[in-house]
Computed example of a mutant assay.
Amino acid sequence: MADEDIYENMPRTEAAPQPKGNPPKTPAPWRPRAGDIVTAVLLLLSLALATSLLAVTLLYLRAQSNLQAVEEVVQKLQVSLQPDNASDASAKGSDSLQLLDEAQAGVRMLKAQLGNVSAAYGEIQIRLDGAARAAVQDHCSEVLTKLSSGWRFYGGNFYYFSQERKSWDASEQFCVSQDSHLTSVSSQAEQEFLSRETQGEDHWIGLTDRGTEGSWRWVDGTEYRADASRGFWAPNEPNNYDPGTDGGEDCVHTEPSKPNLWNDNKCSQPFRWICKQAHGPAGL
């Protein structure tokens, strides 16, 4: 736009433009509790624990099977070596008796190995349980640190709404320094959440068409869907106003004078910004 601030003092008398057709039914956004997050993490850690113990379990069962097979062989040897009379015992010979001794020694060895596997199984389980507890503690500490630093949780993601103003590039650099990116918007519910939280201020979001005019992309790698996003743009936007100055308008911000709909602007303009950090699968 030629002058992005001309709407700043205008009263909001216009209703938000609606997409053609029946308005979509938007479910109420789900706001997870801290307990839900911890429960989900515990479930994931339990899955990892079960996977880690699978190999030891299989080894344990295989050792049991081998022991049972050897014991059956030993029993058959014992039966076959039982002499019917003195001459039969002599015929059996000392070699067969030695074979029996070796088989019995093998049984003792397998029993010892089985005991070792059982002990290892228990030890691994104890260690993994300890690691899981430590991981949950670290996870909860991370969540509390984020929330205490002003981040807000919604739909499986953390969001940071800045109070200072920077250019689009400087805003993205800040987000990257926080292991995040300028926010993408992938649903009507998320758009409404961001609109509520921006509190009447312009905010940069992570949408740009730098490189190829009109080819929009989200900097966090989210797929940009033109059809789904059409209703999020302000009327007659994007328009790449004045492309001869500073390369035109290649970066997008929410504009509260137009019910927080999107507007393309020069990337050098100073606005507040929104960072988004994925916390896990949606719904965690």
Rank of each mutant, 00 (worst) to 15 (best):
M1N: 07
E4F: 13
D5G: 06
Y7P: 00
N9H: 10
N9F: 12
T13D: 08
E14C: 09
A15V: 08
A16N: 09
N22T: 08
K25C: 02
A28V: 12
A28W: 05
G35H: 06
V38M: 10
V41L: 11
L44Y: 07
S46D: 14
L54K: 11
V56I: 15
L58F: 09
L61A: 11
L61T: 08
L61Y: 05
S65F: 11
Q68K: 09
E72R: 13
V73S: 05
Q75N: 13
K76G: 04
Q78W: 01
V79M: 08
S87E: 13
S87F: 09
K92I: 12
K92Q: 10
S94E: 13
S94I: 10
D95K: 12
L97H: 09
L99R: 15
A105Y: 05
G106Y: 02
A112C: 03
G115A: 09
N116Y: 12
N116K: 10
V117H: 08
A119R: 10
Y121F: 14
Q125T: 12
I126L: 14
R127S: 10
A131E: 06
A135C: 02
D138N: 11
S141L: 09
V143Y: 00
T145F: 01
K146Y: 15
F153P: 01
G155F: 04
G155Q: 15
G156F: 02
G156M: 05
N157G: 05
Y159N: 05
Y160S: 01
Q163G: 15
S167D: 06
S167T: 15
W168E: 10
W168L: 08
D169L: 10
C175F: 04
D179E: 14
D179K: 15
S180Y: 05
S180M: 04
L182W: 00
A189N: 04
F193S: 02
L194I: 14
T198G: 12
G214S: 02
E223P: 07
R225V: 10
P235S: 11
P235Y: 03
N239Y: 05
Y241F: 12
P243R: 04
G248I: 03
T254P: 00
T254N: 03
P256C: 04
K258F: 02
N260F: 08
F271R: 09
K276W: 01
Q277E: 10
G280W: 00
G280T: 00
G280L: 01
